[in-house]
Design a protein around this nucleic acid. Structure first.
Lengths: 184, 184
DNA sequence: CCTTAGTGGTTGAAAGTTAAATCAATTGAT
DNA sequence: ATCAATTGATTTAACTTTCAACCACTAAGG
């Protein structure tokens, strides 16, 4: 991800001329939100990359596969659930295949189809990586916020998400079946 | 930006085995936040790109330059204030220079230094683009949230930002001196 | 069957980003 | 002065993402 965003300085006289400009309170909140969010997301990304050598994008692919029956998904389905183009996924899977993380299999029923399957190495990787991810989400986000504020945030962003239509974009999902279970 | 992130499915049995796993409420809030945020940021990015042909990164560069005295900044300063490497900024400015948006000037006092200056076309561009940006921030974020919730969000993310150290990462800043003023 | 349109996926080139190497100018110590 | 270390910026190459073109296969209609 590379996200690179910006914030907002606000001066009274602007307000007079553009009534839609943000007022001081709005500006302060917007700025805290956007700066905090970007620092946070970058932090998660850096940790994942430093500790496991994978990007957020690859992490997400791993999560989806790890949750799927047989740890296998059709390319199209994987692309959709990770919110990326088929082209991009194709390149990503090629790289991961080269690294022994996944393998491709042809799909019998549909001659056009291709399956991506997690290898054992891939499973081991997501088991490790999900711990890093969960730790980050807790340490920098969940554990920092008061429970009632967290609830408020959840409700507010549900509305935001709705207002944007159902582009269920996703980030840093944790595996549903916690991979760590099999380790201990 | 390209940010590509992921969310978190949570099941009770995971909780028993990993006490640090998110509980239902935490998981719901986290998921709403991360999905909402990513959809939102992508939306802003797409609008800026569609309406003005610039990325968030370029938008940020424009904002900083438009706010600076003489609409001019040293490369190093510009890189720091837009949270990017000097290398990346160098590439970005080269592209923008090719498009007539900025020009480089050598810095007399320090023989090593280089100034980047906004051209008239660049100024006209930021005047237009900042309106798109502000509209998006209002329409999808500020106007969607109750004022008291917005305040809560501001405070929560201030804490998050602090917890991450001062990496003042920034996104979609609006120009301080609203460029639109000179148009009417 | 045969044609046509649509789906699933890959490919290659262009554009953008990152990381390391390079280079020139400045600073600071001797 | 001189030399080493540092700073400011660019360059190069590797890597990732995007975009458009493409190919193989399926589905639907005559």
């Amino acid at each position: 991800m590379r996200v690179s965003l910006n914030v907002n300085y606000m001066y009274p006289r602007d307000m007079t001329e553009n009534p839609r400009w943000l007022n001081d309170t709005e500006e302060h909140s917007w700025r805290a939100y956007i700066e905090g969010t970007l620092s946070f997301l970058e932090k998660l990304d850096r940790e994942l990359r430093a500790e496991h050598g994978i990007s957020n994008n690859e992490y997400e692919v791993l999560v989806r596969l790890s949750e799927a029956p047989e740890r296998t998904l059709r390319m199209a389905e994987l692309a959709a659930s990770t919110s990326q183009s088929r082209s991009r996924l194709s390149h990503t899977i090629s790289r991961m295949e080269k690294n022994g993380i996944v393998i491709r299999k042809s799909c019998g029923e549909d001659g056009r189809g291709v399956f991506a399957t997690l290898t054992e190495a891939g499973w081991a990787l997501i088991v490790r990586a999900s711990k890093t991810h969960l730790r980050g989400v807790r340490q920098y986000f969940v554990d920092v916020i008061q429970p009632e504020d967290l609830k408020t945030i959840g409700e507010a962003f549900s509305k935001i998400r709705q207002g944007l239509g159902g582009d269920a974009h996703s980030f840093n999902r944790c595996p549903a079946t916690i991979p760590g279970r099999e380790e201990n």
